[in-house]
């Protein structure tokens, strides 16, 4: 019995269709990614899109998995065979933009304008007396040498009770404070120039405020400032711009429809009243509303003529006045 035909059929049925690619699928095992660089066949693409996409995916996946199994494995008791993926060969673009260059400090700007080249000072300084390198500042810094002297020669004109150590320390602290202040102003300058377009400075806000109050006071005359003398370079007042709904509503048609139906409801309620009024004027019928009104008026007139009070207008008022 020959079952080779059945076997072939079964195999054909259960194997995945892999497409022939003119350029082989490139695999980057470091990223576990496969890249299919072959151009898309337009006829295949347009004839049966889903099946074609599935085949393309299968081809790439097949290439990825076969490359995965080709990697060398090391046996592990816990996890079974383990692979160590190679270094990724695909270079990905940087996620974030390049950092902006640091804003130059006031001194750096001055130095550049004057053509002074920057000399980086060493952190350490040679001490002749001790014959060793000592720190310029900080712990055991040389800048504290003066205040730590065991004896200080008194200069001419110095106060007798002056503490030379305290004076030196105060001078050093003042220098530090001054530097700190300069640093802060540099930081503020850098922040202002980097976000100048997005944020108004306090000065700009003040200017806008002044402009607004000037416009308000200008239009506060009887003629709304129409005949006032205008100053050169005077700001123009801009009115409030009209705002309409979006042409294509983002929330969808539903919201607009609800609005229209609401307006329709109010229109229809008005319509009902109007129709009722119209209905009253049918031929040969008594209009109750008008009849009642007419009757009331007749009654009132009769009462007024009788002089029993309750008449309208001046007659009634005079009557009260006589009492």
């Amino acid at each position: 019995m020959d079952v080779s035909q059945e076997l072939a059929d079964y195999a054909a049925k259960h194997t995945t269709q892999v497409l022939e690619r003119s350029q082989p699928v490139q695999v980057d095992m470091g990223l576990l990614a496969a890249f299919d660089n072959t151009p898309i066949d337009p006829s295949e693409y347009s004839s049966d899109l889903d099946a074609h996409l599935l085949q393309l995916t299968l081809t790439s996946t097949q290439a990825l998995i076969s490359a995965l199994f080709a990697l060398p494995t090391t046996p592990s008791a816990e996890h079974g065979p383990v692979i160590r993926p190679p270094v990724p060969s695909t270079i990905l673009p940087r996620e974030k933009p390049l950092p902006k260059p640091k804003e130059p400090t006031k001194w750096e700007r001055f130095a550049q304008a004057k053509g002074i080249s920057h000399k980086k000072r060493d952190k350490k300084e040679w001490d002749e007396e001790r014959q060793e390198w000592v720190a310029r500042w900080g712990r055991d810094g040389k800048n504290k040498q003066k205040e730590e002297e065991w004896a200080t020669p008194v200069k001419a004109g110095m106060e007798a009770d002056q503490d030379p150590a305290a004076t030196a320390r105060a001078e050093r602290k003042a220098r530090t404070a001054k530097n700190e202040k300069q640093h802060r102003s540099n930081l503020a300058q850098a922040a202002a120039s980097s976000s100048a377009s997005s944020r108004r400075t306090a000065q700009q806000a003040r200017a806008a405020d002044l402009e607004r109050s000037m416009l308000v006071s200008k239009s506060a005359t009887a003629s709304m400032g129409k005949f006032d003398k205008s100053i050169e370079g005077e700001p123009k007042s801009r009115g409030v711009k009209r705002k309409f709904d979006e042409n294509v509503p983002k929330a969808g048609w539903k919201g607009e429809k609800e609005g229209l139906l609401g307006v329709l409801k109010s229109v229809e309620s008005g319509l009902g009243r109007k129709e009722k009024r119209k209905g009253e004027t049918k031929e040969g019928e008594v209009v109750v509303r008008k009849a009642v009104r007419y009757h009331d008026r007749e009654e009132r007139l009769k009462a007024g003529r009788g002089g029993a009070g309750g008449g309208r207008g001046r007659g009634g008022a005079r009557g009260r006045g006589r009492k």
């Binding site: 709904d245 607009e256 609005g259 307006v263 329709l264 229109v267 229809e268």
Partner: peptide, 23 residues
């Protein structure tokens, strides 16, 4: 642009004169 509420009311009142509740 879409109509404002007053404009919509003006249009609907005119249309309702012809088509009534079919609006």
């Amino acid at each position: 642009r879409p109509l404002t509420d007053e404009e919509t009311k003006a249009v609907f009142e005119k249309l309702a004169n012809f088509i009534g509740k079919n609006l």
